[in-house]
Simulated assay, not measured.
Amino acid sequence: MYPTFKKMRTLALASMVVAGLASQHAAAADDGKVTIMVGGITKLIYLPAKLTEQLGYFKDEGLNVELLSQPAGVDAENELLAGAVQGVVGFYDHTIDLQTKGKDVEAIVVFGQVPGEVEMVSTKAADSIKSMADVKGKTLGVTGLGSSTSFLTQYLAHKNGIESSQYTMLPVGADASFIAAVKQGRIDAGMTTEPTVSKLEKTGDAKVLVDMRSVDGTKAALGGSYPASSLYVQSEWVKKHPDDAKKLAHAFVKTMQFIHSHSAEEIAAKMPADYQKDKELYVGALKASLPMYTADGKMPADGPETVLKVLSAFNPSVKGKHIDLARTYTNEFVIAK
């Protein structure tokens, strides 16, 4: 009898531990905690994420938000699908790509009405590369193969009569690793964002070839506005947490309004000091980036079609597939009162 009693007591204790853990997990899930993975938190294209935290807008909405950084957008996407994070601050185009793989993901706030990407040409190669029509036989840097920068690079080259078999794409990451690739001569040109663009211009190592930091520049390059940086989440999460989605959208919309009502200097003053080791360069890069941000977090009307056009040309997952663009984004939460 004693062994049986001992066994029952052990099982009972185990059940209590499991129940306790489950209770803790439930409490954690209901305490407003939201973890967001940012595809490179120091990049200015994703500035609204950290700025919202710095301004205290998450707390104002009663949210407990944790921001994590993952330089590669594809890796951030995987974290979302695995359930390790509730949201990703990354490029909107991931929502289109994921739909072809049976994953329902939608952008609920749009930060960038344009990519904020710039094709930079190494000063050493500037004499031979005057436009994307001159990249035949060259090595072009991208953040990663299969990344947004790779599809944009292929599209720009194709538009100028150069097919992807006629040049080499080399994944070189962003910021310091991108700068190193330019300095070491491993790439002739490459696509990157601020503040890397301003750093390369300041040192004289590279020049702007194609500028997609503004609406006009983007329309000239791609034929329309190109929504890029955004907050995207799994559609199932939105259904289960509509209040959190609404609060996140409200916090971010307040940030977009702050950006459009303050100078680059005033915005920079709110950001962490370690983001701007060269204050003058950071402010200059931010000034050049301000036109990219939406004022209200809404999806530009012509944006999804432009993104689909680019992806359909070079993303094998999207090419030839039917995409329901209405399922890839919503303005519901940014306009909710």
Rank of each mutant, 00 (worst) to 15 (best):
G190W: 01
G116C: 04
K101E: 10
W237N: 03
K298E: 10
A76C: 09
Q166E: 15
N160C: 10
A180E: 12
G204A: 05
G102H: 12
F333C: 09
R327I: 00
G141D: 07
R9V: 15
A29C: 06
K7M: 08
D75K: 08
M37E: 09
G39E: 07
I179F: 05
A228D: 13
P171R: 10
A22E: 00
A285M: 09
G144H: 11
G141Y: 00
P316E: 06
T10S: 11
R327D: 11
E236S: 15
F252W: 15
K247D: 12
E77Y: 02
H322W: 07
L311D: 12
V105N: 03
E332F: 00
A84F: 07
K309H: 04
L11E: 04
A181D: 11
S225G: 06
A72Y: 03
G62A: 12
G217S: 05
F91L: 01
Y232L: 11
S15G: 15
Y2K: 14
L21T: 06
Y226I: 01
A251L: 06
S312L: 00
V334L: 05
Q257I: 00
V307H: 08
I108K: 07
V121I: 04
I96P: 05
E79H: 06
I335M: 12
L152N: 07
V215G: 03
H262K: 10
K103H: 14
K277S: 15
I323N: 08
A126C: 07
G217C: 04
H262N: 15
L67H: 06
L21F: 14
L170H: 05
S148K: 04
T255K: 13
Y293V: 03
K254H: 10
V233G: 03
Y275T: 02
K270P: 01
K6T: 10
Y46A: 02
L47M: 14
K321M: 12
I41V: 02
A14W: 02
V197E: 05
S230D: 07
V215R: 15
Y2G: 04
L81K: 09
S23Y: 06
R327W: 00
L290A: 02
T10F: 03
H25C: 12
D93F: 02
L145V: 09
V233M: 13
S263Y: 00
R186Q: 12
A14G: 11
V34G: 01
D93A: 00
L80M: 08
V135I: 14
N315E: 12
S23L: 09
K43Q: 13
H25A: 15
A301L: 11
A228N: 14
G56E: 09
H241Y: 08
M271D: 03
G20A: 14
V142R: 01
N64S: 11
L209F: 11
